[in-house]
Design a protein around this nucleic acid. Structure first.
Lengths: 332, 332
DNA sequence: ACAAAATTGATAAACGATTAACAAAGTTGG
DNA sequence: CCAACTTTGTTAATCGTTTATCAATTTTGT
């Protein structure tokens, strides 16, 4: 299988390479007759344009980098998947970089991406160790942040779900279903979106005249020690009748831990998580959660990034996407 | 931030571009003094080689394509993540293509990947609609298949977990724990790995003198109708005391369905799944499963692919990776 | 019918790297 | 001291595109 170049196509169709290029890129300067002729030989030969050459000449690579902390996390995987699909439909390919929340890896990836001459960058969450914008690599690179607030807001796009709203609504759902002593369950280190969620929880308490006391209304879960942590907490705070888990990993863990402890969910303790992992539908009882609108998140991200790349429209600077509460059995 | 080319570096260090290139690629033909000089200006300027140019000249892109059916599936995500990391450590970047098990998309992706001039391809599972090898795009492209048997074995590498072994061991575990009437739960359409798993199940029955009767020892789960399907099956076959689920999605669904029906797991019915999803550790009771060795799968895949690319060693043709049974509460 | 304008196509110069072929300078042995 | 060899570095071709500039041809207006 020979690889055909534009020159071969030109020779075979009896025109010049310039004409072939014009036909391929459809920029007018040719007659209908030549168009047919050229297209025919392209079809015959199965010619494919060589992107390396095109990239070199046009200084454009038709590929986008994505920095993502952990693609084995369902939410990130789904988000990346959706973004990738939309980008592909726009003629871009996606280079996925799994940073493992490691700032050094992030830097290494950025260097590689710069070398490859990517046209744009999408940064999802991740470490706040340094500011992407400060990097030489990113100086002239269109990029947007999802769930990671860039420290220098100017000229960058920030997109996130309304974590605050989701937490607020989830907490109010607990209260409306009778919880008098709701507790938020979270990890030690907490991301920017986590802070938003915590604020939503606190404000929902406030609005319902429940005083937020970190001692009583908050439990810090240490991974792998959830049973002991939760057991100790509930012993000290037997009045607890509702838990808002800051994400579904904690939510599901809390659920099974409660069951192991002999508590009934939702009868004794109501429970709501965050992220709407698929497993929420398959727990027993099923787990209420807050669903982020992944499609919209992806859509808006790509739209804005491509706008930045083509300069067609000036990008918005900060976009918050609504979330939706998914009520299931665990919070009845 | 200016972009420096090799020419700039040459001028700034007072040598020719050829020399700079030699220093960068360390191929000998220069003195220690020039090396230091060139490296110094490279450091000062922050020069990065332009991959488009390098690719064009060398006819090599240092990027690998991955065709994967569904990256939001935990096993695939983990596998892709691991492969990506290893490839990155070898200086390759990864272009991920989510085919959604759609043969047309697969074809479109392959065209794009060919245009980009990828150096190699990894195909994970996916539709058997057509044979990659037959595609002109793949004629001279080194590629390996994970969990997808290429129809033309010659010169291609096939890598897979030992699905047969996993299913066999899981089934024997059920039997050894007292199950007299084990049942396999599977979907209507079944992949090549699914067939292996089913064979393992059947042979384990045989070995233990249980006659395999599709009527009695197999239930076909229709997604979204699992409750009714399973309920009907158990009504017709009340003797059922063990279920081997062909994957963890079915496993977890079966588990909660059984609980909803008032069955006790593992007391009434023992249950083992396949793939060792993280959620298995957080169900109640925890779900026994078969774990594929993702690290080894990734390692072996990359090693063989890179061997094919560099011709350093001739690739093996068919590699089977052992799996391990993870026993938890659901099969006690 | 002829000048001006519009259409169509060709030539050749980039883009930034690698590398074969060559040249100059330095080293060595007899 | 000079032939032969080694070391170091330069020049220029090449990869496959795009596109500015120019040239030839056709169309149009009067």
């Amino acid at each position: 299988m020979k690889k055909y170049s534009i020159k071969d196509i030109a020779n075979l169709s009896g025109v010049s390479v310039a004409t072939v290029s014009r036909v391929i890129n459809d920029n007018g300067r040719f007659s209908e007759a030549t168009r047919k002729k050229v297209l025919a030989t392209i079809n015959e030969t199965g010619y494919q344009t060589n992107f390396s050459a095109k990239n070199l000449r046009m200084n454009k690579s038709f590929s986008i980098g994505i920095l993502v902390p952990d693609i084995s996390n369902y939410f990130f995987a789904k988000l990346v998947q959706t973004i990738e699909e939309i980008l592909f439909n726009h003629g871009y390919s996606t280079v996925i970089c799994n940073t493992a929340r490691n700032a050094d890896k992030e830097l290494a990836y950025l260097k590689m991406l710069e070398s490859k001459g990517i046209d744009g960058l999408i940064v999802i969450s991740g470490p706040k160790a340094f500011d992407i914008k400060q990097l030489p690599a990113a100086k002239n690179l269109p990029f947007i942040c999802i769930d990671r607030q860039p420290s220098d807001q100017h000229g960058t796009v920030f997109i996130a779900s309304n974590h605050y709203q989701g937490a607020f609504e989830a907490t109010e759902a607990l209260i409306n279903n009778g919880c008098q002593h709701p507790v938020i369950a979270l990890h030690q280190q907490i991301s920017s979106s986590g802070i938003e969620r915590r604020n939503g929880f606190i404000d929902a308490l406030k609005k319902n005249n429940i005083f937020f006391n970190p001692e009583h209304n908050q439990v810090t879960i240490e991974t792998d020690h959830i049973l002991t942590t939760l057991q100790a907490f509930l012993k000290d705070h037997p009045e607890t009748d509702g838990i808002f888990a800051i994400n579904d990993t904690i939510g599901i863990e809390a659920l099974t831990t409660l069951l192991k402890m002999g508590k009934a969910v939702p009868e004794d303790i109501k429970l709501i998580g965050f992220d709407d992992d698929p497993q929420d539908r398959h727990s027993f009882p099923t787990l209420s959660s807050v669903r982020q609108n992944v499609d919209q998140l992806a859509e808006v991200s790509v739209k804005n990034l491509l706008n930045m790349i083509t300069h067609e429209a000036s990008p918005e600077s900060s976009i918050i996407i609504p979330v939706s509460l998914v009520l299931r059995e665990s919070s009845r």
